[in-house]
Design a protein around this nucleic acid. Sequence first.
DNA 1: GACCGCATGTAACTCGTTACATGATTGA
DNA 2: TCAATCATGTAACGAGTTACATGCGGTC
Lengths: 190, 190
Amino acid sequence: MVARRVLKYAILGLLRKDDKSGYDMTSDFKQAIGQFWSAKHSQIYTELKKLLEEELISSYIELSGEKLEKKMYTLTEKGKEDLHTWLLTQDDHLETEKDVFALRLYFLKDIPSADLLALFENQLNLRTDKLNMLQEQFAYYFGEENPAEDLDADELGHYFVLTKALSREENYIHWLMESMDIIRQRQLGE
Amino acid sequence: MVARRVLKYAILGLLRKDDKSGYDMTSDFKQAIGQFWSAKHSQIYTELKKLLEEELISSYIELSGEKLEKKMYTLTEKGKEDLHTWLLTQDDHLETEKDVFALRLYFLKDIPSADLLALFENQLNLRTDKLNMLQEQFAYYFGEENPAEDLDADELGHYFVLTKALSREENYIHWLMESMDIIRQRQLGE
DNA sequence: GACCGCATGTAACTCGTTACATGATTGA
DNA sequence: TCAATCATGTAACGAGTTACATGCGGTC
């Protein structure tokens, strides 16, 4: 069984502290949590409508300025319960972590060896940019030091997500560089 | 722009060397390449039908025994060209690497601290099993040594995919253990 | 004879993206 | 005044899962 209705719980989770609009959630998915789940505004608005019908959230209108309406959503008691049940759910298996670069690489015999390093370099650039972005985020929220002891429970979730994303990217880059060395070695021997 | 029709190219790629049936491909997605892309048989058969219509592959029937028919697929010239173009495509951005465990963790403030370590332990078990399975696969195909220099171009793709998956799981486990230490430290201070 | 793996397919549904559509607010 | 950002929504389509449906082949 595949993890079901993840977006539903991502949205309920985003509402656990503050009321938010669909637009706010769209922005959240561009921040830290977007490293591990994301959705476009079209999908978010559709899901919000469904969650309202299911009475897991309720809504009210807030004005920004004179006319512009923000539809704010709040967790209902039912929504809180559903979220808390889900938070304690243990996964019974791991999903395939899809990665188009690795897939392409599996077929590398059909990639001319002159083009292979260029593909790696492109991936290295993308990953390096992402790592830099994450390091900036980390420094902004937590400073340059490793502050795990001083954090409150709320910041700790953010801390874990950022350290997870950082270590993922560092590891990816490390593997890319090792693999590029292997390719260069082989090309010398050609 | 999101990477489009990845399954199409995964299938064309799997056919680059040998003819295969839909069933064979379903098995392939349970092996090494399944670490980075996978699909159920229902989706594979549907895609094969589409690729036939597009004339990127052709098919013929092979018998296993007296009656059991295997429908074997072959890359056409058009299919080969399409695959080779795709293999040289550079990604211009990275997709969100979805991870339900990390998502759940972001909301950790709402997880009772007694349950938190159990969630981590569950994830650690899943990841450890996966790492062991990958290590066995690696040992089976490449032996215990690091043989990158002796491989032909075809094995190298397999080698990269396996080392990538291994380093991903090792890194995941390392981060899990570090995070569990932090949680234990904090619980002592409670 | 029963069970497991081999083998192929379709239908209904859910999830996710792209494109279409509209309008307000803020700051340069 | 122009552009970027704020703000919400729907429609069409593509991707992926689950369930339904059927039959052969080998082995215990």
